[in-house]
Write a protein that binds this DNA or RNA. Structure first.
Lengths: 232, 232
DNA sequence: TATTGTATTTTTGTATGGCAAAAAACAAGG
DNA sequence: CCTTGTTTTTTGCCATACAAAAATACAATA
């Protein structure tokens, strides 16, 4: 005879497919990248449990995931805190990202189907559209779409995973990449050239363009850190 | 007034510095890479708890870590199992490893101190010594040393982390790289050439040599999978 | 008042036990 | 042998507990 469970949890979601733990991890991820939790901020387990309405068990497991992603840092017997991106770490991240995105570009040029090429080009068009009528949300969405297509066409899940983690990590910085008009135009032009190289199956060129692009992003990110932390 | 605790757990280690959970994770990692747990094998939580003498709480958190490392795979409501390396995944891993090790080589050539260069060369000498009087354990140890020096000198912790995870993952394959005499000699020669390039600060050459080396390793690994899984 | 030392409260790390729901194992009937 | 129904396992999550570490508050002394 089963005891009456009574709904031991009221604010339980409709039990959507992904496990509760994954939902928690995702919500925390979002909270961090959207700046709701600031870098260096300490995360008290009980507090988070209350705020999110889950048990410590689930919460702590979710925290392990974020820890593995490098998004939060554990100091033994002191607890979790949101990782702070030092200049050093950021440089490291972009060095890695440069190589992996370059790899993805190369692989896409080599393996992508014509449909994927087409899809990529269309997402660039969408991006151009977003630039004409800017909104941060749309920008994030379309840019994410672009990357998803690129990574799918590259056909390397391992690289895709790592790049996705890297993207989440650096999105903490919220580098306000270009609101200026000409910067946007140039960006789109670069992306179209990138697509051209891919469609021409010109691996080397695609690689080169990609490296340059990440290089610029790195510079922007690093200067964004520098100005937020005047360490002179 | 504190209640009598009585030692709620007898087989508790001497509480060495790394937390219990990390110990568990490490033990499981080892069990997997040493082949004690076979690929595809299912891991039952209760069983592992009993075998390792820890609670489900700690065990499950440790499992999350391994999951993030890609070492074990979770199927919802079905539990954990040791990840199986498909040909596809292995190719992906080596593509990534090629780029990241190449990067490490480049960075080492650019940044390593003369002492680190020296240390690297000495570890190659040690490796040559091991070849003369072979033992698997010594081989693993010295090779690990070599990589540690390389990654330290490269000064990129992010890349280092990823490469360490990759090494763990592929060590599951246990590619019996060379027992033959001339293969060993050639390997040492290649490593010395690599050191030469690094000491000459010749980034491009170091990169090139590194890519070639990983390429060979990839071929070996892939053929090792092919023969263990005759999929015709 | 500043400082140092002690007591109190928080918070982590880990353990236990419990239960619903999914999956697997098993048994019975076609 | 296949299918269907029943029992056992196992997962996913929750609540609670408590020692040990850390943070904090507090008191006493210089």
């Amino acid at each position: 005879m089963p005891t009456t469970p009574i709904a031991q949890h009221m604010n339980l979601r409709v039990k959507t497919l992904p496990g509760l733990r994954e939902q928690v991890a995702e919500r925390l991820r979002m909270a961090i990248v959207t700046g709701h939790f600031k870098p260096g901020e300490r995360l008290i387990e009980r507090e988070l449990c209350d705020r999110m309405g889950v048990s410590r068990t689930s919460l702590r497991e979710a925290l392990r995931e974020l820890q593995a992603d490098g998004l939060i840092t554990l100091k033994p017997n002191k607890g979790m805190s949101v990782s702070v991106l030092t200049v050093e770490t950021t440089r490291s991240i972009y060095e890695v990202r440069r190589m992996l995105e370059g790899l993805a570009a190369r692989l896409f040029a080599k393996r992508a189907t014509p449909e994927q090429m087409q899809a990529l080009r269309e997402s660039v068009d969408e991006l151009a559209e977003v630039y004409r009528n800017f909104s941060p949300e749309a920008f994030i969405r379309v840019k994410g779409q672009f990357y998803d297509i690129l990574l799918l066409g590259a056909g390397n899940e391992v690289a895709a995973d790592m790049l996705r983690r890297i993207h989440t990590r650096v999105s903490q910085l919220r580098v306000v990449s270009l609101s200026s008009e000409e910067r946007a135009q140039r960006s789109i032009k670069e992306l179209r050239a990138f697509c051209d190289a891919l469609e021409a199956r010109d691996e080397d060129l695609a690689w080169e363009l990609c490296l340059d692009h990440v290089e610029k992003a790195a510079t922007a990110a690093l200067s964004s850190i520098a100005e937020s932390q005047p360490q002179d």
